[in-house]
Amino acid sequence: MKRRRLLAALGAGCAHCAAQAQGSTWLAPSRFSKPEPGSDEGGLWAMMDREETRLRRSPFVLRDAPLRDYLQDMACKLGGEHCADVRVYPVRTPFFNASMAPNGMMQIWSGLLLRVDNEAQLAAVVGHEIGHYMQRHTLERLRDVKARSAFGMFMGMFGVVGLVGQMASLAGAFGFSRDQEREADRIGLELMRKAGYDTREASKVWEHLRAEAAAAHEPAKSSPMFATHPPSDERSATLAQLAMADSGGFVGAAELSGRLAGLQQMMLEDELRRGQHGETLVLLDRLIARSPQRSDLLYFRGETRRQRATGDDTDRALQDFEQALQLGQEPAQLHRALGYLYQAREQPQRARQAFGRYVELAPEAADAALIKSFL
């Protein structure tokens, strides 16, 4: 009965949702007991336990204890008494996504960490996934898929290798229903509110993703999140409306930035290798607007433009590189990129100077011998 009332509130319109958010009767369920091994649910649970064992051994898991502790603490703030049953794994995959299995295994991908501006925005996504967990949505999907003889494919969606293509092609069949997504959104906001986060940050996550989706040729193929969580105007507006009555809360921009400081370079390199130049430029424009004095961000934007090389991209790439040089503390790779740019422009002297500077700054680089051959 409580669940039906909650779904009715979700479907009654944004203004009504905002009013209900402050006086909601929704209560988090108690911790789930591990099901009996011989039961249907116990069998599904055991399969997810095996998947978690594989995940722990995966080379994609980020072996960064402070980061994992930080994410685990956040999940505990949001999950309350369910904290003891939640295990968070940061995964090195350059796409915006998070998922949570019915046994408490949660993955947070590095592409998500790169794209959120602060801890509150990250908490909005984590709270959403915990909402799915608390309402047993994933368990419902597992049962449904098992009944349709597609369980093996669905289990693959919890892995990493080959996941992107699987998610894009299978999302339509295995994604949560619209009502389940709305329910998880609303519960996520309530969990944020109880944990002291600024719920007004939640809608911004989807605004950012909508901007990237607009720059993508085929959004569902370039990111699993676009396939399974369509970044619609309705969703962003609904989240903003639900948070309208809130006056503030913890944002945590400095906290998240400090925790990712040693990892962001790697995340940006992975993002560049993704080859989705339009989306990457939207992301980098936003990061640079937030931190205009960071020469490394200017390098990555310039390099993205140089690699795309359409229209006036190379001219604008050169502008980014020159601005980064003026700021100083530019990454060594900038000089290599300058060398390639000058080569393409048939300016051999400048190319040699740039390549020489790169080898000087990064003599042990894997491609140092190749670059020396250009000198």
Rank of each mutant, 00 (worst) to 15 (best):
L55R: 11
I187Q: 02
G38I: 06
W206R: 01
P224G: 15
D270V: 09
G278A: 12
H208F: 14
A369R: 08
Y133W: 06
E190H: 13
S247V: 13
G302F: 11
R148S: 01
A243R: 10
V160H: 08
G262K: 13
E330A: 12
L114H: 02
L27Q: 15
A317K: 08
L327A: 01
N118P: 08
A46W: 07
E346F: 11
G339R: 03
F321A: 06
T93P: 00
A351Q: 08
L281T: 15
P37E: 13
F32L: 13
E52K: 12
L263T: 11
F300N: 05
I130S: 11
M225H: 12
P29Q: 07
I130E: 01
A202P: 05
F226C: 03
L325C: 14
P219Y: 01
W109M: 06
R148V: 00
L139A: 01
H16L: 13
P29H: 09
G252T: 09
A98E: 08
L334T: 10
G159K: 11
L113Y: 13
S149P: 00
E181C: 04
R352Y: 07
M267V: 04
F226Q: 07
M74V: 10
L27V: 15
A237Q: 12
G302E: 12
R350G: 04
Q72R: 02
A366N: 01
Q319Y: 08
M1N: 11
M155S: 08
M134P: 05
F154Q: 00
M48N: 02
D179N: 14
E81P: 00
A123P: 02
P224F: 14
L375V: 08
Y89H: 15
V61N: 05
G104P: 03
C76H: 00
P102I: 11
T280V: 07
E346W: 06
Q22A: 15
A202R: 01
I130T: 12
R4N: 06
L139G: 02
Q329G: 06
P224W: 06
Q180A: 03
T25R: 14
S110P: 08
Q166C: 07
M74F: 08
A19V: 08
M192E: 05
R148Q: 14
E346Y: 01
A289I: 03
